[in-house]
Design a protein around this nucleic acid. Sequence first.
DNA 1: AAGTTAATTTAACATTTGATAAGTGGATTT
DNA 2: AAATCCACTTATCAAATGTTAAATTAACTT
Lengths: 189, 189
Amino acid sequence: MSHALITYFKQISQLSTSSEEALKALIQIQSIPKNQDLQHIAQTCKTLYFLKTGLARIYYFHDGNDVTEGFYEPFCLIARAESLFAGAPSKKAIQVLEDAEVWSISTQELSALYDDHRDIERLFTRLFERAYVQTIQRIENLQFHTADERYQLLAQEQSEVLRRVPLKYIASYLGITQVSLSRIRAKKS
Amino acid sequence: MSHALITYFKQISQLSTSSEEALKALIQIQSIPKNQDLQHIAQTCKTLYFLKTGLARIYYFHDGNDVTEGFYEPFCLIARAESLFAGAPSKKAIQVLEDAEVWSISTQELSALYDDHRDIERLFTRLFERAYVQTIQRIENLQFHTADERYQLLAQEQSEVLRRVPLKYIASYLGITQVSLSRIRAKKS
DNA sequence: AAGTTAATTTAACATTTGATAAGTGGATTT
DNA sequence: AAATCCACTTATCAAATGTTAAATTAACTT
């Protein structure tokens, strides 16, 4: 029986049949109601998440302000890498923005497979490489674009977010205030 | 005979003696004069660099403006990951900011070692993980700090850069104009 | 040392964004 | 339906940053 997440993985990197089975055995699925945290602030990241349906964000608090670090759509790897790689508590939380079905994989169980399943190790190396490249592109975006341009880019790349996410979350993601974002929107129409 | 870069690598991740020798055989060293590009724009990233001495930056052009993406000190991995992982030409260049001695490793030769030397593969996975985490931290910095705060943070984390690098490069790294940076500096004294 | 170029600072003004507060509209509760 | 809450917009003013140009300083050449 085919598994949608495994099918997605195989597009990224080859998997032997035995690796496919071993990996499939690790994948858990759960339903999470809107606005609930998948992982709380101060927890150490030991689980990788992938949405089957819904929408999520990673956020943290800066000077008491809620700051959205990123938005995540189905099939996208969701992890707080800075915590995972260091084995240290994260100051960030993962929150589901709509009722969602979520696949999760324990990193401990996953890395136990690496010795016998090199293709699995390479798959996840690739998944993190992709996440890394997106992060690099986001820096370019923040570094030399105006707030207006950053908004346009988000509209191009994650247009669903604009339709489904409260304005305040979008504003902090763009590095501006809610009021400023509202002004930018007003100019367009 | 010990090799300073290998010694550094072994602090990051264990290496067997045979892996150490195999890796050492790939490392080239060259002297590069100040202001020269180590890699030009439009080249595909196929080499990893580490400074033995000197200082470097990655830069690109945005609307005709020279934008510095990052500064690199000795022993730090220098690579244009977005090009390397995709196998596509980079729009970025690597430039040496002072006369420098540079170690380089061909990624093609390196990945040929991965099958027989899993510890080498894991070492470089770790090096890229570290680079990834730095990138994540840089986003936090750009997203919710004022220009002034970003300047202070650079002063803390890479104070050498402030002393040794032309102002215009620092300004674009911080995402502001040279004039604005000059004003920020003036306020402090 | 004089001349030339590059790097940095300063000034003046325009634009963007932040901060605060008030207003509007829609949804939910009772 | 009234009351309440929440999301979003609008208005006003202050602060930060961009733009352009000129002035100063430092570095390099001859």
